[in-house]
Design a protein around this nucleic acid. Structure first.
Length: 503
RNA sequence: GAUUUCGUAGCUCAGCUGGUAGAGCACAUCACUUUUAAUGAUGGGGUCUUGGGUUCGAAUCCCAACGGAAUCACCA
C-alpha cells in the first residue's frame, strides 16, 4: 500500500499526538448536549441568549487566523461553526498544548468535540464560543471536502460515480443532498408502514432462502446448504409465502422483501432490490387500485409535502384517482393493432412487423408483454393502471370475472416504468395446479424464467385461501420517483459494483 | 453479454496535429486574537489505470486487460 504525501503527514501527526500522551481514539462517551441545528434553533428561539452546549462532529472547514480558529463541524443534523480562541481554551501561558497540538494540527475530516456557549460572530454567524476542544477521532485519509459559498453554490463537487458508489461513506459526508435522498427513502418506507399499520396490517418476515424460487418469473441466485446438502435459492419474490400466511388466517399481511434476481444491471435494476408486498383477504383488484392511489398520494405528501412532483423533465401528479386502461387497449392505442384475439403465431407475426426481438421459447404471455414493454410502457408518464392481462402471462392471478381469457391484474405505470403489480389472487387450487403445469411446459421449451411448481403452496391452497388481493411495489423505483433520481444506484446505499482489484 | 465512451495530483479539471506534466481547491512552513469559497508569502506532491506495440521520443497514436458510465439484450 503506497501512501500519498497527505496520508503520510496525517500518520505522522497521529504518532506525534500519541507521543505527547493524547489519545487520538479515546474510549469514553462524549457528553454531547445538542445537535448543531437544534442548538442554533434554541439560540434564535431565545432571542440570541447564550447558553452552554456540547457538540461533536466532523471538521468540514478550518479557517486558521493564527491565534484564532474558525472550525466548522458537521453532525447528524447539520453544520455549526466553532470559534476557538487560543487564550480562552488555554488560559495559562505555559499550557498551550491543547491549542498548539490539537486545534492547530487538526485536519479536515477529524472528529472533535467542543464545549462552549452559543453566540453570534461579528459577521453574524451563529457559532459556538469554544471553551474546550477534544479530539475524538483522527482522520487519516484526506476527505475531498467541497467548498460552498454563502448562496450554497458548490465548488468542485465530487461527482465521479465510481468514487461515490464505492465510497458511499465519503459521499454521504461530503454531499448533503445524498443524505437527504436516503432520509427520504426511510421516510417513504415509514409512511407506508404507518398507512398499512393503521389499516390493521401485520408486518411479517418470510424466508429469503427458498428451496423453490417462486412467486415471479426471473433467474434466481443459487447457493448450497451444506448440512442439508441441497441447493437453495435467494428469493426472487415472497408472494407465495405471504399467501400461505393468508391461508393461515392472517387477513392482512405485508413485508418489505429484499429480492434477488440474477439478471442484468442498469439504471433501474440492481441484483438485490426491495419490494413491498401486501395481501388483503376478502378484497379484489378494484379495491387494490383504490388503495394504491390513496397510498401513493400519502407517500408523496410524506416525502415531498405535495402531490405534484417534478421527475426529470416531467411533472407527475400523484393525487388519486389514476387512469385505468386495459393492456389490449393500450397496445391498440400505441400500435393500432388489436391483438386481443390473436394466437401465438399471430402475435409472433406482430412482433416481427413491429421489429420487436423475441425468444423462440416465448409463449403468448411473453409476446404480449414484449409488445407492451416495447411500444406502450414508455408513454405512461402520469400514474396509470394497466389492467386485465391475458391469462398466459399471469400464472398466479384469478381469471377475470367477466372477460374470457383475461385475469384480474393490474400494473401501475409511472414515468414510463412499472412501479407496482397486483392481482385478484388465484385461490382455486385446481386452476393453480393447471397454471403451474403450463409453466412447466414453458420451462421444457427452454424458458428459463418460467415458474417452478410449488407443491407445498398447492397443498396450502387446497386447505382454502379466502378471496384475496395482493400487490408488489418496487420500493427502489418509487424512491427514485419521490427523490427525482434517475439511477437506482442513487437510492441504494451500496449498489452492486464489480469488486475492486487490490494488490 | 454486445456496442459506444471515459480513466492525468486527495478532489474538480487543463494538457493543440506525439517532444519526458499544469491550474484551482486540498496539503506543508510562515504571518494574522471575530473569519465566510478568509487573505498574503513560500514550498512539496504524479511509474498520466495496467501491460504490450509503433516511434529517435508516447499522457497524447495502435492493441489488450482492468474499472466506471451510457445505450442495447435479459428483467422489476
Amino acid at each position: 500500500m503506497s501512501l500519498s504525501e497527505q496520508e503520510i503527514i496525517r500518520r505522522e501527526k497521529l504518532a506525534h499526538l500519541q507521543s505527547i500522551g493524547i489519545d487520538p481514539y479515546p474510549a469514553p462517551s462524549y457528553p454531547v448536549s445538542h445537535y448543531s441545528e437544534d442548538a442554533k434553533k434554541q439560540y434564535t428561539d431565545n432571542n440570541n441568549e447564550a447558553f452552554d452546549v456540547v457538540v461533536a462532529g466532523r471538521i468540514m472547514s478550518i479557517n486558521d487566523k493564527g491565534k484564532v480558529f474558525f472550525i466548522k463541524i458537521q453532525d447528524a443534523k447539520g453544520i455549526i461553526q466553532c470559534y476557538i480562541k487560543r487564550d480562552e481554551i488555554c488560559p495559562e501561558e505555559d499550557n498551550k498544548v491543547l491549542f498548539d497540538e490539537v486545534v492547530k494540527k487538526s485536519d479536515l475530516g477529524d472528529i472533535i468535540g467542543v464545549k462552549g456557549y452559543m453566540f453570534t460572530t461579528k459577521t453574524g454567524e451563529i457559532s459556538i464560543h469554544s471553551k474546550e476542544v477534544s479530539l475524538l477521532s483522527k482522520s487519516l485519509k484526506p476527505l475531498p471536502v467541497v467548498k460552498r459559498d454563502e448562496e450554497g453554490n458548490v465548488f468542485d463537487e465530487v461527482t465521479d460515480p465510481e468514487f461515490r458508489y464505492r465510497q458511499r461513506y465519503a459521499d454521504l459526508v461530503i454531499n448533503p443532498h445524498v443524505r437527504e435522498t436516503f432520509a427520504k427513502r426511510t421516510k417513504l418506507m415509514n409512511s407506508i408502514r404507518t398507512y398499512l399499520n393503521d389499516m390493521g396490517a401485520l408486518e411479517v418476515d418470510t424466508p429469503v432462502l427458498q428451496s423453490i424460487p417462486g412467486g415471479a418469473a426471473a433467474r434466481p441466485f443459487v447457493t448450497h446448504h451444506n448440512a442439508l446438502d441441497i441447493p437453495l435459492y435467494l428469493r426472487i419474490a415472497n408472494e407465495l409465502y405471504l399467501k400461505r400466511l393468508v391461508v393461515g388466517g392472517f387477513d392482512f399481511v405485508y413485508e418489505f422483501s429484499r429480492n434477488f434476481r440474477n439478471e442484468g444491471m442498469d439504471r433501474t435494476h440492481n441484483p438485490e432490490f426491495t419490494v413491498l408486498e401486501f395481501y388483503v383477504a376478502y378484497k379484489d383488484y378494484i379495491w387494490m387500485m383504490e388503495t394504491t392511489e390513496q397510498l401513493l398520494e400519502k407517500v408523496a405528501m410524506a416525502t415531498n409535502n405535495k402531490t405534484l412532483l417534478t421527475v426529470g423533465d416531467n411533472e407527475i401528479e400523484f393525487k388519486a384517482p389514476y387512469k385505468r386502461i386495459s393492456i389490449y387497449d393500450a397496445i391498440k392505442e400505441h400500435t393500432g393493432i388489436d391483438v386481443s384475439e390473436m394466437d401465438e403465431a399471430g402475435l409472433r407475426a406482430v412482433c416481427k412487423q413491429l421489429n420487436i426481438h423475441v425468444e423462440a421459447s416465448s409463449g403468448k404471455g411473453k409476446l404480449i408483454d414484449g409488445i407492451f414493454g416495447e411500444k406502450c410502457e414508455k408513454h405512461y408518464i402520469q400514474p396509470t393502471f394497466i389492467i386485465d392481462y391475458p391469462v398466459e402471462m399471469s400464472p398466479l392471478t384469478k381469471k377475470h370475472r367477466s372477460k374470457a381469457g383475461l385475469v384480474e391484474r393490474f400494473e401501475l405505470m409511472i414515468n414510463g416504468k412499472e412501479i407496482a403489480n397486483a392481482y385478484t389472487e388465484l385461490n382455486d387450487p385446481i386452476d393453480q395446479r393447471a397454471r403451474f403445469e403450463e409453466q412447466a411446459k414453458l420451462m421444457e421449451r427452454g424458458d428459463d424464467e418460467a415458474m417452478f411448481i410449488d407443491y407445498d403452496f398447492l397443498r396450502a391452497l387446497e386447505y382454502g385461501m379466502p378471496p384475496t388481493s395482493g400487490i408488489g411495489f418496487g420500493i427502489d423505483r418509487l424512491t427514485m420517483l419521490m427523490t427525482n433520481e434517475t439511477s437506482i444506484q442513487d437510492v441504494l446505499f451500496f449498489p452492486q459494483m464489480r469488486p475492486e482489484n487490490r494488490d
